Amino acid sequence: MKKHYNIIIAGAGGIAQAAGLLLMEWSEVPPTVFIGNRTLSKALKVARWIEDGTTKPCTVKAFHLPVEGLTEEMKEILGQGDMLLDCLPGSLAPKIAGLAKDFHLHYANLTEYVAETIEITALAKDAPTGFILQTGLAPGYINILANLLFQQFCSDFEVDNADKLEFKVGALTSHAIAPHYYGFTWSPVGVATEYLKDTLVLRDFKKTRLPSLSERAAIIIDGITYEEDLTSGGAADLPDALAKKVGILDYKTLRYPGHYAWVEEQRSGLGNTPEAITALQHKMEAVIPHIEDDKIVLYAAVEGRDNEGTLYRREIAKQIQPQRVGRHQLRAIQIATAAPLLQSAQLMLESLSSGVVLQSQIDPQPFLNGNFIVPVYGKVLAPQKSLE
């Protein structure tokens, strides 16, 4: 951030923590940050954590964000805010987006929930401020990276379509044990949701809906074998934006071999209702531990033919490790999610866009080389065409 802003963060979990700390450490002009949570003590704890962790002068204020209604304190804070970062569970996103619209705030969220994203898109279409949606890791960074690969492929090979566009992310632990081969590094309800709700893909250049966990395959990335499978939400709006341009497009989640077979046993007969999501979450939480030592593995690829019919494939793979920021060590999932959220927020504040901005509408090259992104993901350079 190159000027002073008042940034409101809704939520006091791990991503909210990381976002607050990155704002202080990596903004040219540190903002004033307001942390709101339904449990005030948790918001106060996060505010102190940010203050203790930053090496820069900072102002961090905690406030009570009730489940229902508005307090006078909230009205005052919302009235002076520039940007509202929604780090709450996705089910609450329409409510928080409504506050942003009512108080003329720019808004950014993280949720992969499809129905809530559609609801916010309708709510914010005539808003005077900007609403940038699904801005985290997946959906978020991975979609912009995939879109860049597609754009560069078409430009370099002078074509207007591709056979395949694949993008995959795994939030993983360094080690995994039987029978589940997994450890929670982020929200268990988010994991259960993406395993049960349908996913949007392109097949034969047309958008279609497929069941999650219905196209499992093995993939080797940097010499390590993972399993990939369809999960909901990660494709963001690319199936709409690239229909008729890409034959096969999908988002898949990466896991260690054996995990998906175990999940299939747990979700047998559950369906994909809200009750089923809760049931699967409880089944997983009963045996899967929460683990602090994590890593992010991501992969994107485009495949197609040049105008002479030769088949080409371009791939990018990255691994994100925990990283020290200021005086705190951030987990990989925290920093990999918070950085794209803040790059999106900066984009919104500096462009002063209005209405809804989706992932396909973001100019990939400047975003992927932005000041919040590069320290986490590194630079993304245009590939060099071979000379023949």
Results as ranks from 00 to 15, higher is better:
Leu330Gly: 00
Ala279Cys: 10
Val356Leu: 00
Lys245Tyr: 01
Ala279Trp: 02
Pro211Tyr: 02
Asp250His: 13
Val374Arg: 09
Thr117Cys: 11
Glu76Val: 15
Pro31Thr: 13
Gly309Asn: 05
Val189Ser: 05
Lys168His: 06
Val60Asn: 07
Gln152Lys: 10
Gln346Glu: 14
Thr111His: 11
Glu68Ser: 15
Gln323Arg: 09
Ala243Val: 06
Ala178Thr: 03
His180Ala: 00
Glu388Asn: 10
Thr193Trp: 02
Leu21Ala: 13
Pro375Thr: 13
Glu388Cys: 07
Pro31Cys: 13
Glu285Gln: 15
Gly247Glu: 11
Leu110Ser: 12
Glu68Ile: 15
Ala19Gln: 04
Asn6Cys: 08
Glu68Gly: 11
Pro179Asp: 01
Tyr141Lys: 13
Thr185Phe: 00
His259Arg: 05
Ser27Cys: 04
Val159Asp: 09
His328Ser: 10
Ile35Phe: 02
Ile221Thr: 13
Ala261Tyr: 01
Pro30Tyr: 05
Thr199Glu: 03
Glu285Ile: 09
Lys75Gln: 14
Ala261Met: 03
Ile373Lys: 08
Asp52Arg: 14
Ala12Asp: 12
Gly326Val: 01
Glu265Lys: 03
Ala12Tyr: 00
Lys61Glu: 15
Asn369Arg: 12
Lys295Leu: 10
Leu165Thr: 06
Gln343Asn: 14
Val60Tyr: 04
Gly140Lys: 03
